[in-house]
């Protein structure tokens, strides 16, 4: 048994950068800042690669909607981590794109692939996004593709006798385990359990033989934005930094609890 796995993902300005929303809406200086593959989608990608490696004959592709120049930069890092094929869409990246048109662009790109075997198709993505957590894009992608088996906040997937055993996060810090007869299915991932793979230049060089031509031919996509924003602002958070060495976990927990109570 093998799968056709397609991971949907976008870019996010490096989450450790200072981000400032500005009217537009947009993020100030977004194109100037380093970007990363959206961390939620990245978890989905690591899990997808792991699953594909377990199931010989599987194929792994990534559909990514982002400004082409930034996408090229980020892929030079992601491509070193694991083997995959890239389907780039040249479009906006900031977190203010509406979920509807975004899902339309992603689903459209998948539908346009000439060689997708829908009976083996697993569509992966992030349950949320680091740019703006609407949390609905993957469901919409599924609906547009006509895939009704959808799982949200997934932390684990196993293959058992051809069926998918999927662990999802549910309310109250609980997990729910479902059994899905098989593809097609949409899995919107929470964090999974796999770490970021180390860079492997040889993998990157191999990936780039297909990625570079794909990036050069990336189609421009301009999803219509169905939402108007009247005002955007950062949360009013005050960071207080202290440097303390050798504090035990219990002491840290006690201090946090006191702070929360206050």
């Amino acid at each position: 048994m093998s799968f056709e796995i397609i991971v949907c993902g976008g870019l996010a300005p490096d989450p450790l950068q200072t981000l400032e929303p500005v009217p537009g809406p947009a993020l100030k200086n977004e194109m100037m800042l380093p970007a990363v593959f959206d961390p939620w989608a990245a978890h989905a990608l690591y899990e997808a690669a792991h699953l594909a490696a377990q199931m010989p004959g599987s194929r792994l592709r990534v559909v990514c909607l982002a400004p082409k120049a930034k996408l090229q930069q980020v892929m030079m890092k992601m491509a070193q981590k694991l083997p995959f094929e890239l389907i780039p869409l040249d479009g906006p990246s900031n977190g203010f794109s509406d979920a509807g048109p975004t899902s339309e662009a992603l689903a459209g790109a998948i539908q346009a692939l000439p060689d997708v075997d829908i009976s083996r198709l697993l569509v992966f993505g992030g349950w949320e996004s680091a740019t703006r957590g609407a949390g609905v894009v993957m469901q919409m992608v599924g609906e547009r593709l006509g895939i009704t088996e959808q799982f949200l906040a997934v932390d684990e997937v196993k293959v058992d006798a051809g069926a998918l055993v999927i662990k999802e996060r549910v309310e109250g810090g609980q997990h729910m385990v479902s059994r899905c007869a098989g593809p097609p299915a949409v899995l919107a991932w929470a964090t999974g359990s796999l770490p970021e793979p180390p860079n492997h230049p040889q993998t990157g060089m191999a990936n780039m033989r297909t990625m570079m031509p794909a990036l050069q031919k990336a189609a421009a996509v301009a999803p219509a934005n169905g939402v108007a924003y009247h005002e955007v602002a950062l949360p009013k958070v005050q960071r207080e930094t202290r440097i303390v060495k050798d504090l035990s976990a219990a002491e840290i927990a006690r201090e946090l609890a006191t702070w929360v109570k206050e």
């Binding site: 930069q73 890092k77 230049p201 990157g204 570079m212």
Partner: peptide, 14 residues
């Protein structure tokens, strides 16, 4: 970005 968009060179960060 211009160099990479030319497709004639790969620049690998990290």
């Amino acid at each position: 970005q211009q160099v990479m968009m030319s497709g004639q060179a790969q620049i690998w960060p990290g």
